[in-house]
Design a protein around this nucleic acid. Structure first.
Lengths: 343, 343
DNA sequence: ACTTTAAATGTAAACGATTACATACTTGCT
DNA sequence: AGCAAGTATGTAATCGTTTACATTTAAAGT
């Protein structure tokens, strides 16, 4: 790698084409405002000199970077990486770039990333985590375009893209109840997240509709991970009157739970019916296939980026709540017979 | 979101602290060059005015962004998202940001992303894909800090972080041969990637050591996906003299192959022993657990970022090839008895 | 006390594009 | 031809830091 050969600047192009820098700039940013003949002359000079505009100068002058920040709890987690994929795709299409802020579920790191926004290094932000406190968020919302995706926050008026977690949790649970199960357990996500609260809320509503009161022995808190599913399930299996069905707030936890059950010789779905959440890539590969609530992760990413663009283009754009449709996918783990699936 | 309240600039801080902008700048970038008393005065003014430096002006002036670009074939793929996680972690530690370029295995998009580098919007680039042509790469290498990770290229002298794919492919295959298998099949990755060529090369070397000549009916090309593993295995199963063992160049393909075998009533590992590659998160969860060559994905990310930083800091830094150690993980799919694993 | 040397701070010129405003050039109309 | 209205181009200020160089202040040495 050699040092950079001295950069060709706009003025060089202008000189070669016998025009002013203003005209060159216009050819680049607003071609129609320049006469075809001049434009061609300029384009040719650009070509000839292999001119690359200095993006940093441009960003500085326009105080705009065509870049957005995504704060994600864990990029190595399928559901998040799919959302990021969706965000990146839509961003790219609209000539935007994505700066990645991976917090590893560390709130401090999330707060650090916010400075990228404050220093205007990006034009906006998509939050895939709901951990930032209300006041900070409120302050930022007044100044910068921000969209919350997947998560949901009470008492904060901001654009949000999510699914109806209450409804989904309810549907998942009712699916088990409808098959005659009455001792239905629930492994929730971390309760400091609204998303987990809502899924649990849905579970409780469903139980209630079937005349079943909340039984805290049947509810344990996990952290969405396989490991936590495994451990919590072991807890349930120690109960003398153990559950016959389980609604886990993530597919990873569902898989962990199933593994734990199997390890104790308990057959799934025959002795334990399980419904998960997310429909990650491996839910269909796992055996038994996980019956689950499919989150439209990529679409969620697309939609939140589109929404963010609206905020960026129009600072007066009013916050919107977009609820995407999700769908229950019936596989083997819940005990309902379905045709063999291979992919 | 309101319009930005007029920004506090360095000159405002300078005035309040009764110094020049130069001093303020020094306090920010090189605190030791300023007398403690002055420094404190400036810091207090910064605090008081809630001054945020204009990063865009800074980037422009210094032609440096403290941002790097990662071009990744598919961020939703576990192995890549883990590498990106490693890259991001090391970048963050060193006060660098990560711009994400997800190509979705589309070469055109990869070429597009290169312009981000050419326009100096980033200080360097990590390539997680080996599809860019030799000449383009050579031209870029002369001007910008670039590191290739996971992939490997012949005839291009550039810093690279990878594992020894030949050795690993050989080891995986020998593991099967050592158990007495002679009809060992191989599903390779796409052959336009050196990585796949090498893994296949290792397979061939191993076969050769056992006196087995290349048999093209036992070698099929996949694309690393579950689906391709499934389809290729179906191909092998149609052979009248079908293989008793398989080395798949990715765990996803191994899983696909196992599913295909199971679908035909063939027991794994009893009737078909399988070894995969990567050790993605689900390889231990899948049943049977996948015996595999573990790629140190996160570490690979860390290391490539460290290497890139060396290039950024010293443009004369000579390209280095770093080969990381990988490890075979024995689980059930290869037929060797091992103690139960649950996680 | 008076140089000499070093440390701390200030002055002002960059960095390279964008764009408001001024000017020059066309075109169409009478 | 002469003028108005519109179109195309040019001029030059501007964005907010950084930093080479100049100047001032402090410390050290005789």
């Amino acid at each position: 790698m050699l040092g950079a050969k001295t950069m060709v600047k706009m003025i060089d192009v202008a000189k070669l084409a016998n025009v002013s820098t203003a005209t060159v700039s216009r050819v680049l940013r607003n071609p129609d405002s320049v006469k075809k003949k001049t434009r061609d002359k300029v384009l040719e000079s650009i070509e000839q000199l292999n001119y690359q505009p200095n993006v940093l100068a441009r960003h500085f002058r326009r105080s705009k970077t065509n870049t957005i920040l995504v704060i994600v709890p864990n990029i190595a987690n399928t559901i998040f990486s799919q959302m990021v994929q969706g965000i990146e795709a839509t961003a790219s299409q609209n000539n935007y770039r994505v700066l990645l802020g991976n917090s590893n579920r560390n709130v401090e790191k999330e707060y650090d990333f916010l400075n990228i926004l404050r220093q205007r290094q990006v034009d906006g932000m998509i939050l895939l985590s709901g951990k930032i406190d209300r006041d900070t968020l409120q302050e930022l919302l007044e100044q910068y375009p921000i969209v919350l995706a997947s998560e949901y926050l009470k008492d904060v008026e901001m654009s949000t893209v999510c699914i109806n977690n209450i409804k989904c949790g309810k549907e998942a649970t009712k699916h088990l109840l409808a098959q005659g199960h009455r001792r239905v357990a629930h492994i929730s996500g971390p309760m400091n997240s609204m998303l987990s609260v809502d899924r649990q809320g849905g579970y409780l509503e469903a139980m209630n509709e079937y005349g079943l009161k909340r039984d805290n022995r049947l509810i344990l808190e996990g952290d969405f991970s396989f490991e936590s599913g495994y451990e919590r399930m072991k807890g349930f299996l120690r109960l003398k009157d153990r559950p016959t069905a389980l609604f886990a707030a993530s597919d990873e936890m569902a898989m962990g739970a199933i593994k734990a059950a199997k390890a104790e010789g308990i057959a799934v779905p025959e002795e334990l019916a399980v419904v998960g959440f997310d429909d990650i890539r491996f839910s269909s590969i796992f055996e038994p296939g996980i019956t689950t609530v499919a989150q439209p992760a990529v679409e969620m990413g697309n939609t939140s980026m589109e929404l963010l663009l609206k905020h960026i283009k129009d600072p007066a754009f009013k916050p919107e709540l977009i609820m995407l449709e999700s769908e229950m996918i019936i596989r083997e783990s819940c005990g309902l017979k379905v045709k063999e699936e291979t992919r």
